[in-house]
């Protein structure tokens, strides 16, 4: 009987350990949310969004240029990346057969695992060295490379979920394949594709490394695409590692704004998916 008691004890012990693992796994998230919320809230004010950064030693000021920069570059990335991602997803789901499609699918998966700093270096060598300067354009391009593989894969998966009967119905009415894809398949998968797009954009909005050697940063108000541009993640990085207390405080404020944006996009995206695809 003692053997059995040992087994029972082991059972409870190890299952308990798994519960503890889960608790430990969730704890950092709570800690991050807590600190970013508390410290960020203390650092935030309306000025953050309306004013420009001040020189060291001058208190106050905001990051209006970084907020605008993030919007512009993420928008640019979406403009460049979404058509590619969605069209490539359509190819994989609707046209892709055989070896070539498998290779593309596999490489897309692998693409999502390329370190973001490598993407930054790649765009630097291709775009920045050629243009002769850091630019918002290069930053947007780098971010679009983050978006493309994510959107390609979600688009493919969602289009595959559209029932075949729907396509047949449309084809039977005499619609061509392209027409069927655009007006029937894509439309009925639209909600899901939008979710995927939002998640990809959230991901791009939080990226720092691809911007460091492409858009660099700027302390001025600039909307020119051919010039360096500020962004929230790069500001968080430079302010956090700076030796100045004021800047460090502002980094927390910027982190709160960024985190709210990114998590907000995630929550909305998931809420959309949940209500639509509850099984």
């Amino acid at each position: 009987m003692s053997h059995y008691w040992r087994r029972r004890l082991l059972n409870y012990l190890l299952l308990g350990l798994c519960v503890a693992c889960t608790a430990v796994a969730v704890f950092p998230l709570l800690s991050i949310l807590f600190y970013v919320a508390v410290r960020g809230f203390q650092a935030l004010s309306p000025e953050f969004f309306t004013q420009m950064p001040r020189p060291v030693g001058e208190p106050g000021g905001g990051m209006a240029n970084a907020v605008a920069g993030t919007f512009i570059m993420v928008g640019l990335a979406a403009l460049l990346g979404l058509p590619v991602g969605i069209m490539a997803g359509i190819y994989l789901a609707e046209y892709g057969r055989g070896r070539l499609a498998d290779v593309i699918r596999f490489m897309t998966d692998v693409f999502t695992g390329v370190p973001s700093v490598v993407i930054g270096v790649f765009i630097y060598t291709v775009v920045v060295t050629r243009m002769g300067s850091f630019s918002a354009l290069a930053g947007g391009l780098a971010l679009s490379l983050i978006i493309i593989p994510l959107v390609t894969r979600t688009t493919e998966e969602l289009l595959r979920m559209v029932p075949y009967t729907l396509r047949e119905a449309s084809l039977a009415l005499g619609a061509t394949k392209a027409r069927t894809i655009v007006s029937v398949v894509l439309r009925s998968a639209a909600g899901g594709v939008v979710t995927g797009v939002m998640l990809a954009i959230a991901r791009a909005a939080g990226e720092t490394a691809p911007l460091l050697f492409t858009a660099l940063s700027s302390r001025h108000w600039s909307l020119a695409l051919r010039e360096p541009m500020a962004s929230l993640p790069v500001y968080i990085y430079t302010y956090a590692i700076s030796p100045f207390r004021d800047w460090q405080v502002q980094a927390w404020g910027a982190a709160l704004v960024l985190l709210l944006t990114v998590l907000g996009l995630n929550l909305v995206a998931r809420a959309v998916t949940r209500s639509r695809y509850r099984y």
Binding site: I32, Y35, V36, G206, T208, A240, W252, V262
Partner: peptide, 20 residues
């Protein structure tokens, strides 16, 4: 919640890691 951890930007982890 665990999946949300994956959504937190890397630079925010860095900030938290550095100061907390």
């Amino acid at each position: 919640m665990i999946e949300l951890l994956a959504a937190v930007p890397s630079v925010v982890y860095g900030l938290w890691g550095l100061f907390v």
